[in-house]
């Protein structure tokens, strides 16, 4: 028996919004430690890794490890039927071929359940090595989203240059060129407004705007985003989900032809 409950459907809706543009389907691996999903996007350019800890749920029970392959478009249709302040419970029997989403209104007067067929997905899992990154940047998630959106107008690629003074995002194309420089902040009142750079070595890397913009769909989940970069290895864009876990996106830098 598997049962996971969140007192508020908003978080689950936001999580789905953060992955459904990149992935058509995904396998949710459930164990007593929580729920994990790892999947490459449809074109195998980026990787999404979602971790939701069991202790972050309002109720969590998983008697036996369970892998549930879900069509994320179908899941989105179902979650649209939940009000933001509904309690959502995900339920499945062991070895079941369906999963049930139950939504309960705050006053308990409306209870709805939606059963969805599970899919057998033959997805390969990638082993992600622990890496010490040359540069780790933490910045407001809204600011990162804004920069990715703005620079995508000028080029398919954005160059991220990180030194201890700051981080610079650049794009150039037919229209001209754009540069956005952010300095590390000191003594900001609010932690979520801080820009913090931990640098071992400076890096200059080029990434596809299209994927960075897809990652920023996770912005509503977190005030801050963390970018981890080293030469010649994939960038990690991480959004923490308060008290529940995190979503990480991996994207390899572009290389010279």
């Amino acid at each position: 028996m598997f049962e996971a409950r969140l007192n508020n459907a908003t978080t689950l809706k936001k999580i789905l919004d953060a992955i459904k543009d990149l992935l058509n389907e995904g396998t949710f691996d459930c164990s007593d430690s929580g729920i994990q999903l790892q999947a490459m996007d449809n074109s195998h350019v980026s990787l999404v890794s979602l971790t939701l800890r069991s202790d972050g749920f309002d109720k969590f029970r998983c008697d036996r490890n369970l892998s549930m392959g879900m069509n994320l478009g179908s899941m989105a249709k179902i979650l649209k039927c939940a009000n933001n302040d509904d309690t959502v419970t995900i339920k499945a029997q062991d070895n079941a071929d369906t999963v049930t989403f139950m939504f309960e209104s705050q006053n308990q007067e409306k209870v709805s359940d939606y059963e969805m067929k599970l899919m057998n997905l033959d997805q390969e899992h990638l082993g992600i090595p622990e890496t010490d990154y040359s540069c780790v940047v933490r910045m407001p998630a809204m600011e990162f989203a804004r920069i990715c959106r703005d620079l995508a107008q000028f080029s398919e690629s954005v160059v991220i240059c990180c030194t201890k003074e700051g981080v610079k995002f650049s794009a150039s194309g037919d229209v001209g060129s754009a540069n956005v420089k952010l300095a590390q902040t000191f003594n900001v009142d609010k932690e979520e407004e801080a820009i913090v750079i931990e640098m071992q070595e400076p890096v200059v890397l080029t990434f596809a705007c299209r994927y960075l913009n897809a990652f920023t769909k996770a912005t509503p989940l977190s005030n801050q985003v963390q970018l981890s970069m080293s030469a010649d290895v994939p960038l990690v864009v991480e959004y923490r989900i308060a008290e529940l876990g995190h979503i990480r996106y991996y994207l390899a830098p572009k290389i010279e032809d």
């Binding site: 899992h125 082993g127 080029t206 991996y250 390899a252 572009k254």
Partner: peptide
């Protein structure tokens, strides 16, 4: 510039 696949950076488990 070329965009490598993410799979080429991580090992298949």
């Amino acid at each position: 510039m070329a965009q490598p696949s993410i799979a080429s950076y991580f090992n298949t488990r």
